[in-house]
Every structure is written in structure tokens, then in C-alpha cells.
């Protein structure tokens, strides 16, 4: 018999069928268990759109966006300091990152929130006069929001500094030379040539960190800041439907994180021009 007439028997992947079936069975079991659990699913939509929950959602997003934005700006500055020819600047940036990356965020939030214990007033004096640019009781200035913003933002800025530094280092030095050769100033070289190319390396880990930041805002609940978890607890303290309110909060976290993912996708596409 000529070989072209021979019947071909494709390999059977029996293992794949078994593993697939096993996963489906386990998922079904989980589904039945949850359906049978003592959860009042019909109450979840009410908690999901509850006035307190929405205000917690807004505060969570505002805190995360403010802290991340500030952290990015500070991170760029710190990365530049770390790459500076000035040894004092390099040393300072290294120490800053060592400190703010090394301490737990929760501890930092608590330190800021209790600042009034050690400094009664926060003052910015005008040099050589008795006048003050700012002179306020610490208790008034450091609200729960400000303490959480400082705790989350300063910690994140230390991480951002390293992410930005990695991004800047990834740009070919020839790019800087080319920019100089057409007469660009150092500032313009950074903004027009180095940063846009560094962004390709900076964006993915920053997106990761922002998702962490969104969830990290939950730590602000310990100082009474009304973010999603605090909002859920407040609602459930009246009706004791703890699981139901937490599920509503969980849904909001997943929605916000998904929106952030979409944003990251478009940012990556914008900065991937000419490369992908």
C-alpha cells in the first residue's frame, strides 16, 4: 500500500479530558455550596448601591488616584536624584527609598495620623521675620485623608522611584546623544526623547502598583477613613449582614480594578507606538 493512502491517527490527549472534567466538577461543587450557603443574595444589590457604599467607593478612588499621582511625581524626582552626578542627592534619594520602602504602610499611616502627639503645630516661618506662611494645629491639618494620603503616597513614591529609574536606564544612551546633536536642551531631551521611551518600561509595573494602591486604601479604615471596607462595616453594623455587605464591596473592588486594567491597556498602546 502506498504511504499516502495510510490513515493518520491523531494523538489522543486523555489527560486533558480528565483534568478539564475534574476542574468542572470542583467548580460545580463550589457553585452548589455557595447557592446553598446562608447568604442573602437578594440584599447584595441594595448594599452595592447603598449611599454609604457609594461614598466609600468615591473616597477609595479619590485617595488611590491622589496617592498614586503624587507618588509618580515624587518617584520621577527621586529617580532623577538617584541618577544625579551630585553625591549628596544620590545619597539622599537612596536613604529616602530605604526608609519609605522599608516600613509597612499601615505603620506609616498610623505615624502620620498621630503626628499631633509630637508636633502640636505645623509651621512654615518666613525667614528673618516673626510672620508665618503657615501656622496651624497639627490636629486640623492631618485629617484621616491626609494621613492616609501621606502613608500610602510616600511608600508608593519609593517604589515608583525604582520603577522610573529602571525605565530611564532602559533608554539607549545613543538616544540622548541624538537629541543633544539636534540642539535639544537637557529638559527637552528628557521630556521628548527619554521619558516617552522609558514609559514603555514604566507603565506595566506602575499599573500593577496602582491596583495594589486601590486595595491598599483599605488600610485607611483603621484610622476611620470612610473607604469601601469601612463603608461595608458601617452598613453591616446595623443589620449584621456582614457577608452580604463585604460581597458588595468586593464587587466594587473588582469593577474599579477592571477599569484600571483597561486604562493601562490604552496607555501601553499609546506609548508602544513605533515599537509594537
Amino acid at each position: 500500500m502506498a504511504s499516502e493512502d495510510l490513515q493518520v491517527v491523531p494523538i489522543r490527549h486523555w489527560g486533558r479530558w480528565v483534568v478539564g472534567a475534574l476542574i468542572l466538577v470542583l467548580l460545580a461543587a463550589l457553585g452548589f455550596a455557595l447557592a446553598d450557603a446562608r447568604i442573602l443574595y437578594e440584599d447584595v444589590p441594595g448594599f452595592f448601591t447603598h449611599e454609604i457604599m457609594i461614598s466609600g467607593l468615591v473616597d477609595t478612588v479619590v485617595l488611590a488616584v491622589c496617592a498614586q499621582t503624587g507618588a509618580i511625581a515624587l518617584g520621577v524626582l527621586l529617580a532623577l536624584l538617584r541618577r544625579s552626578p551630585n553625591p549628596v542627592a544620590r545619597w539622599f534619594a537612596w536613604g529616602y527609598i530605604w526608609l519609605f520602602r522599608g516600613l509597612p504602610v499601615l505603620l506609616q499611616i498610623l505615624l502620620w495620623f498621630n503626628l499631633a502627639l509630637v508636633f502640636k503645630f505645623i509651621s512654615i516661618p518666613v525667614p528673618f521675620t516673626d510672620a508665618f506662611l503657615l501656622h496651624e494645629p497639627t490636629n486640623i491639618l492631618i485629617t484621616a485623608f491626609v494621613a492616609a494620603l501621606l502613608g500610602l503616597g510616600l511608600n508608593e513614591s519609593a517604589y515608583m522611584a525604582e520603577i522610573v529609574r529602571a525605565g530611564l536606564s532602559s533608554v539607549d544612551p545613543g538616544q540622548i546623544e541624538a537629541a543633544k546633536a539636534i540642539g535639544m536642551t537637557p529638559g527637552k531631551t528628557f521630556r521628548r526623547v527619554v521619558l516617552p521611551q522609558a514609559m514603555r518600561v514604566i507603565i506595566p509595573p506602575t499599573g500593577n502598583n496602582f491596583i495594589n494602591m486601590l486595595k491598599g486604601t483599605s488600610m485607611a479604615s483603621v484610622i476611620g477613613f470612610l473607604e469601601l471596607i469601612h463603608a461595608a462595616n458601617r452598613i453591616s453594623s446595623g443589620n449584621l449582614e456582614i457577608m452580604e455587605t463585604l460581597i458588595a464591596a468586593a464587587l466594587w473592588y473588582l469593577i474599579v480594578v477592571s477599569v484600571a486594567n483597561v486604562g493601562q491597556y490604552y496607555l501601553e498602546r499609546a506609548y508602544g507606538k513605533g515599537v509594537r
Binding site: A178, A181, V193, Q197, K273
Partner: peptide, 18 residues
């Protein structure tokens, strides 16, 4: 440097621009 044009061995075009 505006008066001095330079062409490099490895071109060094800006990859993110046309």
C-alpha cells in the same frame, strides 16, 4: 550644537516617532 549636524554609526533615530 544647532550649527553642528551629526550622523551616528547606529543611526539613533527616535523609535517612537515616524
Amino acid at each position: 550644537r544647532r550649527d553642528i549636524g551629526m550622523v551616528f554609526q547606529r543611526f539613533n533615530l527616535f523609535p517612537h516617532r515616524t
